[in-house]
Write a protein that binds this DNA or RNA. Structure first.
Lengths: 192, 192
DNA sequence: TGCATTTGCCTAATAGCTTTAGGCAAGCCG
DNA sequence: CGGCTTGCCTAAAGCTATTAGGCAAATGCA
């Protein structure tokens, strides 16, 4: 029985590719085994469970996304940084829909704390350094940016904006403009 | 064999409850059959497939959400309407997480066109009537609101904001404040 | 190089979910 | 009351997940 040379690394990487091709929720231990032309049980030496596989793919995606963001932010500040940061998410989701979906997988707290998720949070705060926000407004803004980016990307990917003018690239640009304007002029709390 | 009185209606309603209890992705024909103490195959007279069941639950959720939004918007305008509209989404997601997740199910275009999704779009435009936006900016704003609401709710539900101060209610309020300010002062396109 | 050990992939088996085909009886209708 | 529709059932096949235990290939050590 020829050995194929499986490893956790290769499985996770192939799982990520599979996710991009057929969707993250179609990533299955069986499908992966088929892809390597190997029996299903063989994967269980390298991966604890289906859940484990998915978690590892999610962690890979978070790393890749954080790496891209770090590169994009280097040498940029203010609106320039904001736009670059925003584009990283959108472009990644368009290029790697399955991985992006994986990155949304709910992780248990310890796993999340050890993931690249914390780099994302730090980088979002770095982007906001170009604006004049102090706590707790900075945290509010972090959450707003996360919401807009994730919400937009997920609606766009889900086809929520299809079949309607104007095109989504224009909207994306104008939303980034709007966020920049908002952050430069962050309103005080309204009267309670 | 006593007849339980199944019907598509009852199945979908029970499926929605099940979704809220155990999560939308745990909603399964088998689980539903157990809940009615009936054999699995019996459900297939009332529901075409597992996918069909999920789609019907999604449509139910969209209807409920649209009904709530319509009620909330009645007699309100401007920021008042914006805040009420926003709260409808967040509150619904908190009360009915499974149904809310169902509402995000990707529908095929014809189904989507016949769903309550179009009411949502209309109502979002109604909210924006309180602000001075003309096309195509109104469409950009519709998409922004959709992104923020969906993104925030989905991150909050996924635990993305947990374990960190300040509490999420404050952030939510301030985000609505910020959106109101932004819509009252929508920026012109930045220089290309 | 030859042998022992590790380790990779396999077979076998259990269990759950989905879906289809065909059967029997409960309840409606004349 | 008898006939017909229709609701729920049994049976069966196919797919996924997961575990246990086996054989052979690769590795390492003499």
């Amino acid at each position: 029985m020829a050995r194929v040379g499986l490893s956790t690394e290769r499985l996770v990487r192939a799982g990520a590719e599979l996710a991009d091709e057929v969707g993250f929720d179609q990533v299955t231990v069986s499908a992966l085994a088929r892809r390597f032309d190997v029996k299903v049980a063989s994967l269980y030496s390298h991966v604890r469970s289906s859940q484990d596989l998915k978690t590892r793919i999610a962690l890979l995606a978070l790393e890749e996304l954080a790496d891209r963001a770090a590169t994009a932010l280097a040498g940029r500040a203010g609106k320039d940084a904001l736009a670059a940061f925003a584009d990283v998410y959108r472009d990644y989701a368009r290029e790697h829909p399955g991985r992006y979906a994986a990155a949304q997988l709910r992780l248990d707290p310890e796993t999340a704390a050890a993931s690249a998720g914390v780099r994302h949070a730090r980088m979002t705060r770095a982007v906001l350094r170009g604006y004049d926000l102090t706590e707790p407004d900075q945290t509010h803004a972090v959450r707003l940016l996360g919401s807009v980016f994730h919400g937009y990307v997920s609606l766009e990917m889900g086809g929520g904006f299809s079949h309607s003018a104007p095109d989504t690239q224009q909207t994306w640009t104008r939303i980034v403009d709007a966020l920049d304007a908002l952050l430069r002029n962050w309103p005080a709390p309204s009267a309670p």
